[in-house]
Amino acid sequence: MTYKLISNGKTLKGETTTEAVDAATAEKVFKQYANDNGVDGEWTYDDATKTFTVTE
């Protein structure tokens, strides 16, 4: 399945996607992506749209 990340960081804003077997796997990928880009904030997940959002 395709999962989307919306980043509302102070230094990184935008969207990216990943293919993953489940939401937990996608979350690990996205949290590593955010960490690699210096984004640390509040996370939410919408199962209906398969979208994670991180806001700093």
Rank of each mutant, 00 (worst) to 15 (best):
T25C: 08
A26T: 00
T2C: 14
Y45R: 01
G9W: 07
T17R: 08
T44P: 00
A26H: 00
G9P: 05
V54G: 00
M1Q: 14
V54H: 03
A48T: 11
V21F: 12
D36M: 11
L12Q: 07
T44Y: 09
T51E: 03
F30D: 00
A24E: 11
I6Y: 06
T49F: 05
V21D: 10
V21N: 10
T18W: 07
V54Y: 04
W43G: 00
D22N: 09
K4Q: 05
A26G: 01
F52Q: 01
T51I: 05
T49G: 04
A26F: 00
L12F: 15
D46F: 04
A24R: 10
G9A: 13
D40V: 14
N35R: 15
E56K: 06
E27Q: 10
D46A: 03
K4M: 08
D40Q: 14
D40T: 14
E56R: 05
L12I: 11
T51M: 03
D40F: 15
A48V: 12
T25K: 05
F52D: 00
E42N: 09
M1P: 08
A23E: 06
T44R: 08
T55Q: 07
A24L: 10
T2F: 08
A48E: 12
W43R: 01
N37P: 01
V29M: 09
Q32I: 09
E15Y: 14
K31Y: 05
L5W: 04
A20C: 09
N8A: 10
K10E: 08
L12P: 05
T55V: 09
T53G: 02
T55M: 09
F30H: 00
K50V: 03
T11N: 12
A48D: 11
T55E: 06
T51A: 04
T18Q: 05
G14D: 08
F52K: 00
S7T: 15
K10S: 10
I6W: 05
K4H: 13
T2H: 06
N37I: 11
D47R: 07
T25V: 06
Y33G: 00
T16V: 14
Q32D: 07
K13V: 11
N35E: 13
T25H: 12
D22M: 03
G41Y: 04
L5R: 00
A23K: 13
N35S: 14
Y45W: 03
D40R: 13
N37F: 10
T51K: 03
T49K: 06
Q32N: 07
T55L: 08
V39H: 04
Y45K: 01
N35L: 15
G9L: 14
T17I: 10
T17K: 07
N35P: 01
T53V: 07
K4A: 05
N37H: 14
G41S: 02
E42M: 12
V21C: 13
Y3G: 02
D22H: 03
E27H: 11
V21M: 13
D36T: 08
T2K: 10
F30Y: 01
T11I: 12
K10N: 10
T53K: 06
T2V: 13
L12R: 06
A23W: 13
T53E: 05
T49N: 08
V54I: 13
T49D: 04
Q32A: 12
K50L: 09
D22L: 03
K13I: 12
G14N: 11
T17A: 06
N8K: 12
A48I: 11
D22Y: 03
T25R: 06
T16D: 03
G14R: 13
K28T: 08
W43T: 01
K50R: 14
Y3F: 13
K28I: 11
M1H: 14
A20K: 02
K13D: 06
D36K: 10
T44F: 10
T25I: 07
T11C: 15
D47K: 08
N8W: 14
L5E: 03
A20T: 04
E42D: 12
M1E: 12
A34G: 03
T18D: 02
K31E: 03
T2Q: 09
S7L: 15
S7F: 15
M1N: 13
T11E: 08
V54N: 01
F30Q: 00
N37T: 05
D36P: 01
Y33N: 02
T49M: 06
G9Y: 07
T16S: 09
F52T: 00
Y45E: 01
K28G: 06
I6V: 11
G14M: 14
G14Y: 14
Q32G: 06
Q32P: 01
V21W: 12
T55N: 09
D46C: 09
T16I: 15
D46Y: 04
T49A: 06
A20I: 02
G9K: 05
T55A: 06
K10D: 08
K50C: 05
F30I: 01
T16M: 15
E15G: 07
A26P: 00
L5T: 02
A23V: 11
K31P: 00
K50S: 05
A24D: 09
T16P: 04
A20W: 02
F52M: 00
K10R: 13
T2L: 13
T11G: 11
K10A: 11
A48C: 09
T49C: 04
D47T: 07
V39K: 02
A23R: 13
G38N: 09
V29N: 06
L12V: 09
T51C: 04
M1K: 12
M1T: 14
I6M: 07
E19A: 08
V29H: 12
A20L: 02
V29E: 06
N8D: 09
F52C: 00
D22Q: 03
T55K: 07
V39N: 03
T25A: 13
D40S: 13
N37M: 14
K13T: 11
V21K: 13
L5A: 02
E15A: 08
K28W: 09
T17W: 14
G38C: 08
Y3W: 06
E27N: 05
I6C: 07
E42V: 14
A26I: 02
A48G: 07
T18P: 00
N8C: 15
L12M: 11
G38I: 04
L12T: 07
K28L: 11
T18S: 04
A23C: 13
T2A: 05
G38K: 06
G41P: 02
T53W: 10
E42G: 05
V29A: 08
G14W: 15
A20P: 01
E42Y: 13
F30C: 00
T16A: 09
A34R: 02
D46I: 04
A23Y: 12
E27K: 09
N8Q: 11
T44C: 10
D47E: 14
A48S: 12
Y3M: 02
G38V: 03
G41E: 01
A20F: 04
G9H: 11
G14V: 15
K4I: 12
G14H: 14
V54W: 04
T49I: 06
N35W: 14
F30R: 01
G14K: 12
L5S: 01
I6D: 03
A23D: 04
N8M: 13
N35I: 15
W43F: 05
E42R: 09
T55H: 09
L12Y: 12
N8G: 05
G14Q: 13
A34N: 02
T18E: 03
V29P: 00
T16Q: 09
T2M: 12
D46M: 03
Y3D: 02
Q32E: 08
V39E: 03
D40W: 15
E56P: 10
K13C: 15
E15T: 13
E19Y: 15
A24I: 10
W43K: 01
F30N: 00
A23I: 07
A26D: 00
D36N: 09
L5C: 05
D22I: 02
Y45P: 00
D46L: 04
V54Q: 01
E42W: 12
A34H: 02
D22A: 03
L5H: 01
E27W: 15
A24T: 09
V54C: 04
A24P: 08
K31M: 08
K4Y: 15
T55R: 07
V39I: 15
T18K: 04
V21H: 12
D40P: 04
D40C: 13
A48L: 13
D47M: 09
N37A: 10
V39F: 11
